[in-house]
Computed example of a mutant assay.
Amino acid sequence: MLGTIVTASAAAVVAGPAAGLLGYRQFKRAAHTRRLRIASPEGIDESGFVRIGGIDQYVSVRGEDRRNPVILEIHGGPGASNLVFAPRTRAWEKHFTLVRWDLPGAGKTFGRGGPTGQGEMSLARLERDAVELTEHVRARLGVDKVLLVANSFGSVIGLRLARSHPELYSAYVGTDQNIAAGGRDRAAAHHALCERLRAAGKHKELATVTAMTADATVWSAQQWSQYAKLVVTTDPLTYDTMKTVVIRSLWFSPLHTLRELSTYLKGMTFAEQLGPQAVAIDEHAEGTAFRLPVFIFQGDQDVVTPPEPARQFLDDITAPVKDFALIRDAGHFASFRHPDQFLDLMLTKVRPVLTRNPVSS
């Protein structure tokens, strides 16, 4: 959803950094590399390409104790690999084994095959690939079920997996949770964006958004991307998170070369074609009965995926266990702006449910 603004913010830095900035990048990457080192005898640190969906897809598996519950992440964007956040989420790996996957069109998977080697770019294909990867993870790590954690655009796929495959997943955790309603119920968010543009005196942008109307099902991929960019850049907290959390994580990632950072940004632009497909989904029509625990942890000030539709959706569903919590002082990317708060929620709300219903059951 945010590929355009990430690309616009980071492209200049990646394309032509000064020598001093390169030196500081090297210093920070070295520090992050030391932070990421796993030395515990029960730990695991594996990464590489797995043949999924007919193409090579990048998978990272990290954790300090293989006996911990296994998390499979479904990242957002589309095309925004979570691998860059590894230093920020290092503490999660003390309590969970974290499987991070670069979906088709994202990160190292996009870099491996390029735009012509990604295969079919559809939500249905990504769901199939996720199931195939889940089976691979279960076999590799010797577990019956994994904990499914999805953020932002990935939460659209995450809800589908949670509905359809309770036999594979011990629970579902959505953060920056999208609640698609077939393009409906966007009037409040559309109006809020118009008001921010009006207050900022951005009359050209206001005219563009007004002409688009609130019905996202009729938007082109370009309009969808343009709308997302305006939502981010007109909200101070979201824009600050983009600069201080997302862009810094990209630039100082010890797991990516400069060439890979450029490829990362190109992948996000390539994957934007998935955006309009997600808008057309109606989550209520897809089903409100879940046969596994469902948790939603949302930024309290998120203007991209506001908390109230997510809270209402959780109220409307049935599940063995369900819970909702706000991450304080957070907009979008809430779990990465405040990884400590997110981990606390995982340990106090999710982990006890897994203990009562073990991952291996």
Score class of each variant (00 low, 15 high):
65 D>C: 08
65 D>N: 15
66 R>P: 03
66 R>F: 02
67 R>E: 15
69 P>R: 13
70 V>K: 10
71 I>K: 10
72 L>G: 06
72 L>F: 01
75 H>V: 05
75 H>R: 02
75 H>M: 11
76 G>M: 09
77 G>E: 15
80 A>C: 06
80 A>N: 06
83 L>P: 00
88 R>V: 11
90 R>G: 01
90 R>Y: 01
90 R>Q: 10
90 R>W: 00
92 W>P: 00
92 W>A: 03
92 W>M: 05
93 E>K: 08
97 T>H: 04
98 L>S: 12
99 V>C: 05
101 W>R: 07
103 L>G: 00
106 A>V: 03
108 K>S: 04
109 T>E: 10
109 T>I: 13
111 G>E: 09
112 R>I: 00
118 Q>S: 01
118 Q>G: 03
121 M>Y: 07
123 L>E: 04
123 L>T: 04
127 E>D: 00
127 E>V: 02
128 R>H: 01
128 R>D: 13
129 D>F: 02
130 A>H: 14
133 L>H: 07
133 L>A: 05
134 T>E: 02
141 L>M: 14
141 L>W: 10
142 G>C: 14
143 V>E: 01
146 V>R: 00
147 L>S: 04
148 L>V: 08
148 L>W: 06
150 A>H: 10
151 N>P: 05
152 S>H: 12
153 F>V: 05
154 G>L: 09
155 S>A: 09
156 V>T: 13
157 I>C: 10
158 G>L: 10
159 L>G: 03
159 L>Y: 08
160 R>N: 15
160 R>D: 15
160 R>Y: 11
165 H>K: 05
173 V>K: 13
175 T>D: 12
175 T>N: 14
176 D>Q: 03
177 Q>G: 03
178 N>F: 11
181 A>N: 09
182 G>A: 07
182 G>Y: 12
184 R>K: 13
185 D>L: 05
185 D>G: 10
186 R>A: 01
194 C>N: 08
194 C>I: 07
198 R>I: 06
201 G>K: 14
201 G>A: 09
201 G>M: 11
202 K>W: 07
206 L>S: 09
